[in-house]
Every structure is written in structure tokens, then in C-alpha cells.
């Protein structure tokens, strides 16, 4: 009896060990520079600074150093936190409300009648999504706008408004089915 069970367990154990070894040899280890890049790849690249870092990449580097937590990115929300937790092998955290709350994708538009052409928003925009020149009306390239809202505080005439992102950026999706009873 025990011989039989022991034999079977040994065989299975060997199989699993072999499997694990094969899997381990397949994935090379990564350095910490690579880690920051991997983290950066999971961030939404809104460059909004709500994480209190200068952009997504600096936040990624702070996380890689252990100087920031993974729950500081409101645009990424739960999904980003989950993927970061998975990447780093830590427990997911709830989004820290100090940094803001997750909201549907949005973009900004400039009220072109009100715009005085001060160029402050152009300088604030982290992804060069606003075009215009001094004393000329400015406009937002909607497709490039991340909805970071960094252009709003500098605007002296308060002519920038947040609107839902156009449909292409949040197309119809199959909703999750109703949950199964258990």
C-alpha cells in the first residue's frame, strides 16, 4: 500500500518538478531598469501627475525603487492596480482616494470663442495635444488628449471643459454576464 502510494507520489512529484524547472529556465530574470519599463508599460500614460509624480515613467521608477505604492493611479483604476500587483507579486490595494477617483475616459475641449491665445495650456500639455500660437485661438487634438486636465488650472479664462471621450475610445462592449449562483 504505502509502497504503491509512495511510488505514485514520487512519479508525480518528479513530473511536477520537471515541469517547474522547464518553466523556470524559460523566463530569464530582469533587472530593476527593466522593471521600471515593465511597470511603465502597465500605466495608462495620461501623464496627469495625480500620483504626485511628474509623469507615468517617474511614477514607474518610484514604484520600482519601492518609493511609491501601486494604488496611486486614478486613470488606470482597479485594472491597473491589479496588473501591477500581478507583475510585482504583491497584494492588490484599493485605489488611494487622496489621488482621485476612477472615472470614465474623458478629454478636454477649448471654447474657441473664449480662448485668448495665451499658450499656457500648450505648455502644460504633457503630450503636445494642444495646438495654437500666441494670440491665436488654440484647439485640442481630441485623439491625442489623455484627459489629464493639466491644462485647466493654468487657463486664465477658464475656457477649457472636460467632456466624455469620443465613442471610438470607449466603444460598445459585451457586458459581463449575470453572475452564476455560486
Amino acid at each position: 500500500m504505502f509502497t504503491a502510494i509512495a511510488m505514485a507520489v514520487l512519479v508525480l512529484g518528479a513530473l511536477m518538478a520537471a515541469r517547474v524547472l522547464v518553466a523556470a529556465s524559460a523566463s530569464p530574470p530582469r533587472g530593476s531598469h527593466g522593471l521600471a519599463a515593465d511597470i511603465d508599460r502597465l500605466l495608462p500614460q495620461t501623464q496627469c501627475g495625480r500620483c504626485l509624480h511628474a509623469g507615468c515613467r517617474p511614477y514607474a521608477e518610484a514604484i520600482a525603487r519601492g518609493a511609491a505604492r501601486i494604488n496611486q493611479c486614478p486613470p488606470g483604476g482597479e485594472a491597473t492596480i491589479r496588473r501591477l500587483a500581478q507583475l510585482l507579486g504583491v497584494e492588490p490595494l484599493a485605489l488611494n482616494p487622496r489621488h482621485g477617483r476612477q472615472a470614465p475616459a474623458s478629454v478636454v475641449i477649448i471654447d474657441e470663442e473664449a480662448c485668448i491665445g495665451c499658450t499656457r495650456c500648450i505648455q502644460a500639455c504633457p503630450v503636445d495635444a494642444i495646438v495654437g500660437a500666441a494670440r491665436q485661438m488654440h484647439t485640442v487634438i481630441t485623439a491625442e488628449c489623455t484627459g489629464c486636465e493639466l491644462c485647466i488650472p493654468p487657463c486664465p479664462v477658464d475656457c477649457i471643459a472636460v467632456v466624455p471621450a469620443p465613442a471610438a475610445q470607449h466603444a460598445w462592449q459585451w457586458p459581463a454576464p449575470g453572475r452564476v449562483s455560486a
Binding site: 511603465d40 500614460q45 495620461t46 507615468c56 515613467r57 491625442e144
Partner: peptide, 8 residues
Amino acid sequence: AAELRSRY
């Protein structure tokens, strides 16, 4: 995101 990263 990749596009935005390159713009940034």
C-alpha cells in the same frame, strides 16, 4: 498608451 508615451 504606447502612442501617448512616445509623444510624452
